[in-house]
């Protein structure tokens, strides 16, 4: 091959490279991997499971899958256990998240001032949030142990009636709610504390000059100004609480009876114990739709901007 031929080839390769990596095209090369990742990891399972929800795929029956049309959804409408678990989920989410915000806000107000050992308090308060839910579940299961647990031991020492906690259907849901509050109040605390510290000082100083009490400042200034952050915390925690699984699975496995079984646990039971994959997918989809509805309602109802009279 002659030198000139090589030069021509080299020039055309450079031109090809230039075309391939032109500024106009280069941006796609950065975006495409992310898009592929989203399609494969995020979108594909959603589409696949949506399709699955219209199939009858019962692995235990050792029969091939068949088209079920809307049969899975129709069955779900009449499935009392699903509705009961949904009720449990809603009670759990609303009570736990509300109390987490109340306690988290109280703690944030308490520590939003110059006090000695402030850093230590803050670190100690966020520790529960750092623990894995499975470990938290086991810890609280031991704490609640009726005969050997420290909670009942303290009650016994104080001559108070001992609780049956997880072993009684009337107290078990509240017991797991307390555990969730213990773990996730720090989340509300840390976000709300950051919110409080970002509030402007001038309105509070003006209110003080005008003779407003602390309670009046809290009600007329702090709450309206912090409301958007409260909304965000409520929203984020609600979305998480509706999906609760791990803590309850470890503590009660949904029992006694069905008293602590949540919808995600039921979906897991149907899909991965009974191996009714089509019906399990239908449950998962109904849960997803309900979560989206809750999310939309909350974003409409809850304020996202500061509203002051």
């Amino acid at each position: 091959m002659s030198t000139s031929a090589l030069q021509i080839r080299g020039a055309s390769f450079s031109a090809w490279l230039g075309r391939v990596f032109s500024e106009r095209r280069a941006k796609y090369y950065f975006v495409v991997p992310t898009l592929l990742y989203l399609l494969l990891i995020g979108i594909f399972p959603l589409i696949f499971s949506f399709g699955l929800s219209f199939l009858n795929w019962d692995v235990a029956a050792q029969r091939p899958m068949s088209f079920a049309a809307l049969a899975n959804y129709a069955e779900l409408m009449g499935d009392d256990r699903f509705w009961r678990t949904l009720l449990n989920t809603m009670i759990f989410a609303v009570v736990a998240v509300t109390l987490e915000i109340v306690f988290g806000f109280g703690l944030a107000l308490l520590l939003n001032r110059e006090i000695r050992g402030q850093t230590v308090f803050r670190v100690l308060l966020v520790l529960p949030m750092m623990a894995t839910p499975v470990a938290v579940g086991y810890i609280w299961r031991m704490l609640y142990h009726v005969t050997n647990g420290p909670i009942n031991h303290i009650l016994r020492v104080l001559h108070l009636p001992m609780g049956t906690w997880l072993s009684d259907g009337s107290t078990s849901l509240m017991s797991v709610i307390i555990t969730d509050i213990w773990q996730w109040t720090p989340f509300a605390f840390i976000i709300l504390l950051a919110g409080l510290q970002s509030l402007p000082r001038e309105p509070f100083e003006a209110a003080k000059v005008d003779g407003a009490s602390s309670l009046q400042s809290l009600y007329y200034l702090t709450l309206p100004m912090i409301r958007p952050i409260l909304s965000i915390v409520f929203l984020l925690r609600m979305v998480e609480a509706i999906k609760i699984f791990d803590i309850i699975y470890v503590m009660t496995a949904g029992g006694p009876g069905i008293s602590t079984e949540t919808s995600t646990m039921y979906a897991k039971l149907v899909s991965l114990t009974q191996f009714r994959l089509g019906y399990g997918a239908a449950i998962a989809y109904v849960l997803l739709i309900l979560s989206i509805i809750v999310f939309i309602i909350l974003t409409r109802v809850l304020p996202t901007e500061v509203e002051m009279e």
Partner: peptide, 24 residues
């Protein structure tokens, strides 16, 4: 038999537990 986890773990275990807890 096939479906044993469903017969026993999903159904019997649940309702016996409910009966013991006084829910049923």
């Amino acid at each position: 038999i096939p479906g044993k986890p469903e017969y026993i773990d999903s159904v019997l275990d649940l309702h016996v537990s409910s009966a013991i807890a006084g829910e049923e």
